[in-house]
């Protein structure tokens, strides 16, 4: 879904690294605060923790302009359809950080109202446990995600049509 489809495969193998590097250092997160953890996400973007050092300060309110969704907080059953829909609206390539115990596994809320982990509805790349995790943990998660993005190959992405060899 992007530049890699337009290029011949020989060049693309070398380009992978460049594209990966660019993508990794300009992750635009989508503001998606659901509960307590959203506060720590906001703190991470404030002056003390300065998420801009990792190129991820451009919080976008619209899914169309974002690359990454930080699911910060409890996903309730009432909210779940919206989470799924917003994830689908983000254009490829896209990544998800499940921030906080609730987003990872439901946390302490094993009740009728909550989804037991956001991975029941959307794929997750990095899990950050904690109730809530410290802002540093979010930065660590972003660094981990950057590592993943840098090592990603175009052929890894299952949603891509195969580029014909030759």
């Amino acid at each position: 879904m992007g530049i890699e489809q337009k290029l011949p495969p020989v060049l693309a193998t070398n380009l992978e690294k460049v594209v990966g590097l660019c993508r990794a250092n300009s992750i635009w997160p989508m503001t998606f605060g659901l509960a307590c953890c959203a506060l720590e996400m906001m703190v991470a973007s404030s002056s003390d923790y300065d998420i801009a050092r990792f190129g991820a300060e451009a919080f976008r309110p619209s899914p169309r302009q974002a690359d990454m969704m930080i699911v910060a907080g409890t996903v309730t059953k009432k909210m779940a359809p919206m989470v799924e829909r917003i994830y689908n609206q983000i254009s490829d390539p896209k990544w998800v950080i499940a921030y906080g115990s609730c987003a990872c596994s439901g946390g302490i809320f094993n009740t009728y109202g909550t989804v037991q982990g956001v991975d029941e509805i959307i794929p997750v790349d990095v899990y950050v446990p904690g109730c809530p995790p410290r802002p540093e943990a979010l930065l660590a998660a972003i660094m981990k995600l950057q590592k993943k993005i840098k090592s990603e190959k175009f052929s890894d992405r299952p949603d891509l049509p195969k580029v014909a060899a030759g």
Partner: peptide
């Protein structure tokens, strides 16, 4: 409302 109704009372 109720998008963050986690069932605290019941819990």
């Amino acid at each position: 409302m109720g998008h963050l109704h986690r069932g605290l009372e019941k819990l």
